[in-house]
C-alpha cells in the first residue's frame, strides 16, 4: 500500500472554498491551482505534495457545478479525496476527470491533520495506524470511467473498440 499524508477537512466543504469564483476566469487550471482552498488555508497549494490525500466529513464538494474544483486538486497531485459522502456533481466531475473520490464513513473521525495513512485503491482499503477500513465500492460503470483515467479517455477508448 502507498503512504500518503492527510489533509483533514470538515463537513460540507463547498466548491467556493475549494476554488473561489473569482479565479474561475483564469484561463487555465495550471494558473487556478495556486488559489486552491484559499478561503480556508492560505498556502495550501504551496504546502500540498503530490501523493497527499484529502480526508473530509460529509457532503464534500457541495455547491456549484464547477469542474475546476476536482481539477485543481488533481492538478496539485492530490491522490484521492476520501469523504463520508460527496455532493453529486462534485462526485461525477471527480470520476469524469480521473480523480478518485472514495467514500469511507469512518475515516473522518479516525484521522488528524498530517497523519500518514496507507491507501490501496484497487482493493478499496484504507489503513490508519493499526486499523484497516473498507471503503465503499463505486458502481461498475463509474469504476470503468475512473480506470480509463476519466471520461475523455473512456470515450476515446470506446471509439477505438
Amino acid at each position: 500500500m502507498e503512504k500518503s499524508k492527510v489533509w483533514k477537512f470538515n463537513h460540507n466543504v463547498d466548491t467556493d472554498q475549494i476554488i473561489p469564483s473569482q479565479y474561475l476566469l483564469l484561463p487555465t487550471i495550471e494558473e487556478m491551482k495556486a488559489y486552491t482552498f484559499e478561503p480556508l488555508i492560505k498556502d495550501f497549494a504551496k504546502q500540498v505534495q503530490p501523493g497527499d490525500v484529502i480526508i473530509a466529513g460529509e457532503n464534500f464538494g457541495c455547491g456549484s457545478s464547477r469542474e475546476q474544483a476536482p481539477r485543481v486538486l488533481k492538478e496539485l497531485g492530490v491522490r484521492a479525496v476520501i469523504a463520508g459522502s460527496f455532493a453529486r456533481i462534485f462526485f461525477r466531475n471527480a470520476i469524469n476527470i480521473g480523480l478518485p473520490a472514495i467514500i469511507c464513513k469512518e475515516a473522518y473521525d479516525k484521522v488528524k491533520q498530517d497523519d500518514v495513512v496507507e491507501l490501496d485503491m484497487s482493493e478499496g482499503l484504507l489503513k490508519i495506524g493499526d486499523e484497516t477500513l473498507t471503503c465503499t465500492r463505486l458502481p461498475e460503470y463509474m469504476q470503468t470511467i475512473l480506470n480509463a483515467g476519466g471520461l475523455i479517455e473512456f470515450l476515446n477508448k470506446e471509439e477505438v473498440e
Binding site: G63, S64, S65, R66, E67, I89, R92, N93, N96, I97, G150, L151, I152, L155
Partner: peptide
C-alpha cells in the same frame, strides 16, 4: 446545464440538473 441551479426547471415538471463541463462536452 453547466450550473448547479439547473434544478429550477423542475418547477414546470422537467428533470433538470447540473453537470460539469467535461460531461457537457460529452
Amino acid at each position: 446545464g453547466t450550473d448547479s441551479h439547473t434544478t429550477t426547471y423542475g418547477s414546470i415538471g422537467a428533470f433538470s440538473s447540473g453537470v460539469g463541463y467535461t460531461e457537457m462536452a460529452a
